[in-house]
Design a protein around this nucleic acid. Sequence first.
RNA 1: GCGGGCGUGGCGUAAUUGGUAGCCGCACCAGACUUAGGAUCUGGCGGAGCGAUCUGUGGGGGUUCGAAUCCCUUCGCCCGCACCA
Length: 920
Amino acid sequence: MEYNFREVEAQWQKYWRNHQSYKTEIDSNKPKCYVLDMFPYPSGAGLHVGHPLGYIASDIYSRYKRLKGFNVLHPMGYDSFGLPAEQYAIQTGQHPAVTTEQNIARYREQLDKIGFSFDWSREVRTSESSYYKWTQWIFIQLFHSWYDNAAGKAKNISALISVFEKEGNATVKAVNDHLDFFTADEWNAYDEEKQQYILLKYRLAYLADMWVNWCPALGTVLANEEVKDGFSERGGYPVERKQMKQWCLRITAYAERLLNDLNTIDWPESVKEAQRNWIGKSEGAYMEFEILNSKLKIGVFTTRPDTIFGVSFLTLAPEHELVDVITTAEQRKAVDEYIYYAKNRSERERMSEVKKITGAFTGAYALHPFTNEKIPVWIGDYVLAGYGTGAVMAVPAGDQRDWDFAKHFNIAIPPIVKDADISLAADATKDGIMINSGFLSGMTGHEAMKAAIVEIEKRGLGKGKINYRLRDAIFGRQRYWGEPIPVYYKNDIPYSLSEEELPLMLPEVDKYLPTEDGEPPLARAKEWKYKGEFAYEHSTMPGWAGSSWYFLRYMGSQNDKSFASKEALNYWQDVDLYIGGAEHATGHLLYVRFWTKFLFDLGYLPVSEPAKKLINQGMIQGISSFVYRINGTNQFVSSGLKDQYETTALHVDVSLVKNNQLNIPGFKQWRAEYSDADFILENQLYICGSEVEKMSKSKWNVVSPDEIIQDYGADCLRMYEMFLGPLEQSKPWNTNGISGVSNFLRKLWRLYHNKAFQFDVSDEAPTAAELKILHKTIKKAEEDIERFSFNTSVSTFMICVNELTDLKCNKRAILEPLTIVLSAYAPHVTEELWKLLGHEQSITKTVFPQWKEEFLVEDSYEYPVSVNGKTRFKLNIPLSLSKEEIEKQVMDTEEMKKYLNGDQPKKVIVVPGRIVNIVV
RNA sequence: GCGGGCGUGGCGUAAUUGGUAGCCGCACCAGACUUAGGAUCUGGCGGAGCGAUCUGUGGGGGUUCGAAUCCCUUCGCCCGCACCA
């Protein structure tokens, strides 16, 4: 019988399930290896061929490491809270838990068919209370913590309270919101409300008025990374800026560590760089400008304190709190109008009209701290409320934006660098010599930089400061399908639930929409009150909450005493290999690092980074097919003729298209509206257009792995996805080469069988040539897996099987180790062959064979001999010879004499085992 | 604008990390066995040339005995960030 993959694969999948072949327990006798995939959001569309790419790679790695003697933790679960299920619920009234459950079942079925070696006993689902209990628990830890800059780590809030009681807050070096100083006596005299208000300014999870990205269509706030170009990432709805009371996480406290520790992990440079940009560290100075005729001061942050003498105006963000106070009566109208304009300009407009210069003069003046000159104070929305202090000292000579603003509003542009031409643009370089700059004159910009900070600090005008672009993470979402935030309110003061009161279950509601007065959906649960009395927080946590720590829960998914036991945490430590998409670079991958560091600070974890090694698998794109409908008709014109008509391109289901030819009867049946469609053909065929796009249901270009498995089998799908190219590379899905992989698997099967397809393996001793093929393959496969080059190892196997086929080698001594090596890639067929070879136990219980140098050593090597770097001929020379002997042999050849033409060579380069190069 | 990555046959890719460019597969061509082939096997396959040979890794320049690989420059593509003071 030829290999029957359908039967064999189903049978082994059942065997693995029944025998719990991949269940993992702590085993201190073995080294651990934690191989993790980014868990999927179980969408209604099911898996497409792009999803398993990373899973296949991690599965191969896991199987390989197991055979190498490692205790491998390779789990899978679902990121099952999320927007699509909720929106489906809004439309249909179906509870999100129900749809989620169905989708998970479908995902599981599809995953199982690919033959993954996941330990399903450790499965997690973020939407289950046994899981989100611990997400809530971590939130409570954040709520009860503050960041001690002196110690460089998070600490329990009780430590802070006892300092307040004894010393007030002057000695505390914390990452907190701006706050006045108070003494111990003052603290002790404050009432509960005031104390809680102050503590909130220190907590790592805090409630504050924030400028947020508000998406009216979704009825919720969004984090910066959930907004793309002024539109929501999910759904693509417009987003506006709005001030709201929101739960936030003080991730900014970790900015420096998140930045520095990037140097300790082996992650793709692109991800590290994206995180560095996102954190956006910049060094400079904070300084204050006094307002003329007032006690008020405007604080600014600048990276160019060296240009202080070039300041000719200040600009405040329109939202800046001092704008209203300092605006003069004459300018009031203009300022109010501008603020109204800026407020109603959508984020989208503001971003796309960067070049448009707008602003207004407040009428107020500030004093230059060094020259005491009057400096006009303007407002303009090129200054962002959320960055720095929301105010800038404008140096038009040194900053292009300030220059543009000054030019537009006719403000002076005082020169501060010698010979700099600032008539057409600002000069932002620091290399010139400073002029008109008081004590800085004569220095270069670089020197002036340091000198200016020294002087600013000396005069008490401000201080050197490091600023980060990173903002605190807004943690509340006005949605139903998420983790309830475990907080209740007493006299408007938020209090967290105690650990014993968790989980705080998600309540049932009648509808999944916001209430009529704009409250989040949870407000619909009228009876849902803490102790039947106090209102709970009605926002839920964002999508990234559950995914920020799931790698830890896999270590103790059944544990109900803690998120994972100390023993498990100490054994499994961190993820050794993490595979997932690059789109999470500044979202999930930053938050998971943040939470890991936080839990490390509190002593719950032995590590402060979640994953040592990260690989971003490339996206598999779809190839969309198009038909061209002549506008206003139901007539479709073939791709080559479409330019003769006014047409609209319509996506057509790729399953109706083969070699770009449309299956016309199928197309007519596809949708009722096309049943009487007409076609204008070329060469009797309808040719579709095609384009590479992201694989998505709406583009009708989704290819499901199930189809491939049905036609070629799971082993073939696994190997083909690996064969397609480097794991990190994005590529469009096509099945052009799949027959090559399919042939390989058939050839493999035939090695163990005779012409009549009867199992036929000989016990003869292998020849040197056969041993060489085997050991070469083992070595190469091992090297390839260790450097995550899965595509080249598939080629290695193809070569191996071709060579063994040529030698008609069916010897057990060769095939048995080869089967083991291959089992990481093609687990089903190798299990079957292993059984046929007479083994009782699953091939997963074996050991990866060790390659031996002795079978690989050559006694001679065919040297490429180059003349002036160009290879001219080849010469077989024993490898044992010395450089001199090799040189002599080469020189004595007839060919060499021809090239030398009687002369002596200028130079001879001999690299033993590599090449001989003669320069004449 | 800033940052990251990439550019090799008709196509997907490989190259021991500076040492024979094009492994492996697809497609294609020729042949064998066949009633037949969308089966199997054999051979060929970067370009030019009957040939020895020449030429060739987006273009130009450099370092080197030797460059797809390192450096400079230029063109093109993909991704991320973007009024961050």
